[in-house]
């Protein structure tokens, strides 16, 4: 089943080469603009800012740009449309777990986007700006796993937004709220380590850093060894929590649907 999903994804991507290229151009533009302002910030801090030197900052910028096509920070999903249209009633008749199937599909597409979208973005950054990356194998192995978990956390969370549609007439509000808060706390605009203490504490109390900030930290070797394993542990804990909540909401939603008669 996942093999078939992957093939479909490849076909969809290859039939819109222009869209993929366009996404890359956008990534590169924003990456360069971010590089400029963040490098200047590092410079005026005297060469290191919150533990970032220029090379590490570059790695943060380009890896986070690369993950943008795979991590869902926009809050929209097919599931949301299916809940709104009522098509989800059909999904409940299938012999697969609705939550699992929806998230797996999205994660599959997200993983695939790493190839045409993620890797080239990182490559552009590497060639145009240069970046500091770990020289040992460990961070890459753990980092790859951390990225996988991060992508999954984001799609599992967006699934929660989708199922609020069982009770809310209009889900656009939660989408907009998610889009703004998730971007900030996931470290899309700046690393959360640059935040003032209180704001960073707030960010760390949410699952959002697990989607992008932590994977980037592990992959770039900002955290290593036992600390890195600890960070991945935090990600997994959030994943478990979000999935559990999703399961509970799905069952409650199914009951609502049955009460209303679909």
């Amino acid at each position: 089943m996942y093999g078939r999903l992957l093939v479909a994804g490849v076909r969809r991507q290859s039939s819109y080469p222009l869209a993929t290229l366009a996404g890359l151009v956008a990534n590169a533009t924003f990456g360069l603009l971010k590089t400029g302002i963040l490098f200047a910030a590092v410079g005026s801090a005297g060469g290191t800012l919150a533990g970032y030197d220029v090379g590490a900052m570059s790695a943060y910028v380009w890896l986070s740009q690369g993950l943008l096509g795979s991590v869902n920070l926009r809050g929209r999903s097919d599931m949301m449309l299916r809940v709104r249209s009522g098509d989800v009633a059909i999904d409940f008749l299938r012999p697969v777990d609705v939550q699992g199937a929806a998230i797996a599909t999205d994660v599959g597409q997200g993983l695939f986007a790493l190839l045409p979208r993620g890797l080239p973005s990182v490559l552009i950054g590497l060639l145009a700006v240069g970046m500091t990356m770990p020289t040992s194998l460990g961070p890459y192995v753990l980092g790859a796993f951390s990225v996988l978990v991060g992508i999954t956390v984001s799609h599992a969370f967006v699934y929660l937004l989708a199922v609020t549609g069982f009770w809310l007439v209009e889900t656009r509000g939660v989408t907009v709220l998610y889009m703004s808060v998730a971007g900030l706390f996931a470290g899309l605009y700046t690393p959360i380590w640059l935040f003032p203490d209180w704001l960073r504490a707030v960010a760390e109390a949410t699952p959002f850093p697990s989607m992008m900030m932590y994977p980037v930290d592990v992959l770039t070797g900002r955290v290593t060894g036992g600390d890195a394993v600890g960070v991945v542990g935090v990600q997994l804990a959030w994943l478990a929590g979000v999935l559990l909540l999703g399961q509970v909401l799905t069952r409650a939603g199914r009951r609502t649907l049955e009460v209303q008669g679909g």
């Binding site: 005026s44 808060v181 640059l194």
Partner: peptide, 21 residues
């Protein structure tokens, strides 16, 4: 909200360092 988030980026950066550019 979206506008505020875009502003936050600037605010965070200038909170972390004295001046930029």
């Amino acid at each position: 909200l979206v506008g505020l988030m875009e502003f936050t980026e600037i605010w965070v950066l200038f909170h972390a360092v004295e001046g930029i550019g």
